[in-house]
């Protein structure tokens, strides 16, 4: 089952997965909020690398741009605008944490079991490498997915206006 060929893709996957997992674990285990955000940025970049491996170059670009860039920065702004005890865990909740760990591990166990048990047939025809990925997505966006695309633009507008209204000081 683990007889994988040491292809270039596998090596790259291995490197990225190490980056992602270590970033995620560090994010959970760090105590300072800024460190957490930085490790999370590493995770985002790792995922962008995986997108590249999966021949989704445009998505990888978007991932870096939006997640590693915008969202991380947004989070840092959020951190700066609120007050934090640097050292968290002033009150530990051992029962709560244990139960959550058990739950998360059990969920992973079930998922892993399901993944191992499933048969994934080989794709009938691989995704064509020839065409430009970004071009293809652009075409799709403005043909098949034009309505969702426009709706997303509305959603984003509403979200940003809402965010401004919410975050605005009420006193003025």
């Amino acid at each position: 089952m683990f007889n994988v060929n040491f292809t270039g893709e596998f090596v790259a996957f291995f490197i990225f997965s190490v980056l992602i997992i270590s970033g995620a674990v560090l994010m959970v285990s760090f105590t300072k909020v800024v460190h957490m955000v930085v490790s999370l940025a590493a995770v985002f970049i790792g995922i962008a690398g995986m997108f590249v491996l999966l021949q989704a170059e445009f998505l990888a670009f978007v991932q870096v741009l939006i997640y590693a860039g915008a969202v991380s920065i947004l989070m840092i702004f959020g951190i700066m605008m609120t007050k934090h005890q640097d050292a968290e865990a002033d009150r530990s909740r051992p029962l709560h944490e244990t139960l959550t760990a058990i739950g998360a591990l059990a969920l992973f166990g079930i998922l892993f079991y399901a993944i191992r048990q499933s048969e994934f047939p080989e794709p009938e025809q691989p995704l064509s490498q020839a065409t430009d990925n970004t071009m293809e997505i652009g075409k799709l966006l403005f043909t098949n997915y034009v309505v969702p695309f426009e709706l997303v633009s509305v959603l984003l507008t509403v979200a940003f206006i809402g965010a401004i209204v919410l975050a605005k000081k009420e006193a003025d």
Binding site: I20, M50, A104
Partner: peptide, 12 residues
Amino acid sequence: TMAAILFCIGLY
């Protein structure tokens, strides 16, 4: 599997 790991860490 990678996604599952990530999801569970996020959940935790």
